[in-house]
């Protein structure tokens, strides 16, 4: 909740104010309780009527006024957050057990959402299986991805940078590693990125070509898409431009050759219960595959 996002920007002062009010109320109650508990020899005198009046005024009317004011404020903020405005960019977000699919028209990527800085991004959330919830704490509150319906949320990143996000709704055994990153970058950089993402993979050469054959010759092809090849399955993330992403396994490892090798050798070690099996590959074949995946920029 650092206030880097436009939406969080509307929320942050509200949150600060909320904590301030709550803090004041808490201090008032503790002081009153302390005064009530102060040691003494005799009971204080209090008429029946005086007691009831104190209870109703201090306990009923005062809280009612504070709550009503706070409630109105919260409605004003809600209205601002949900005000309909045409978005600059629209992205389809699909929650899967346990990764995020992001579709920009024909381009598809996973777990790394690129957005242009300062622009209003509309996310259309769906789910391929169970309920997930999209949350990037620094940018925006949550919206659930519910199977059978499409929910819409908006976010705006006011400053360039990388923002961590998570799945916030328990969605099964690897809920913990269903993370994502939002990359906010200047419009020009974003456009270049998107143009690249829309392309097919560049045909590989050398060991990478061997890697592609390994990919297409094993079960990898049953789950993943690499555009430009025969791999078109949509169970797992689209890998066409995997090398451009910073993380693998929805956040469980960084994307470098050593980690990728370890991941392919035994995904279950890093993400027990995930649907990716360990694929029986020879060492040479595996290394060629890693080289290939590393070439998919």
């Amino acid at each position: 909740m650092s206030g880097a996002g436009g939406a969080a920007g509307a929320v942050t002062p509200f949150v600060v104010l909320t904590f301030t009010i709550a803090g004041l109320v808490f201090v008032a109650v503790v002081v009153a309780l302390g005064a009530a508990l102060s040691p003494r020899d005799r009971a204080r005198s209090l008429t029946e009527r005086g007691g009831v009046r104190a209870v109703l005024v201090l306990g009923g009317i005062v809280p009612a006024i504070v709550v009503a004011a706070f409630f109105m404020l919260s409605l004003v903020v809600t209205a601002r957050l949900t005000a309909a405005r045409a978005p600059d960019v629209a992205v389809e977000v699909v929650g899967h057990q346990w990764w995020w699919e992001f579709r920009y028209g024909s381009a598809a990527t996973a777990n790394e959402l690129h957005v242009p800085v300062g622009e209003r991004v509309e996310l259309r959330l769906r789910s391929a299986d169970v309920i997930h919830s999209f949350w990037v704490p620094a940018l925006q509150g949550k919206t659930d991805a519910v199977p059978g319906q499409t929910n819409t949320m908006w976010l705006t990143a006011e400053r360039p940078g990388r923002y961590d996000g998570v799945c916030a709704e328990f969605c099964g055994v690897q809920h913990a590693w269903m993370r994502l990153v939002v990359v906010a970058e200047p419009r020009a950089v974003f456009d270049r990125w998107l143009a690249r993402q829309s392309e097919d993979r560049r045909p590989p050469s050398g060991p990478a070509a061997e890697g592609e054959r390994a990919f297409l010759g094993h079960v990898c092809v049953d789950c993943h898409t690499i555009r430009g090849t025969a791999a078109r399955a949509t169970v797992g993330p689209d890998l066409t431009h995997l090398a451009g992403r910073s993380l693998v396994g929805a956040g469980v490892l960084r994307n470098d050759p050593a980690a990728l090798r370890a991941w392919i050798d035994d995904p279950q070690h890093f993400k027990p219960g995930a649907f990716m099996p360990a694929v029986p590959l020879g060492v040479a074949e595996r290394d060629a595959l890693v080289t290939y995946l590393g070439s998919l920029e």
């Binding site: 409630f71 409605l75 809600t78 209205a79 949900t82």
Partner: peptide
Amino acid sequence: SLPGVLVA
């Protein structure tokens, strides 16, 4: 009745 006034 306030949300009807303050929220679209």
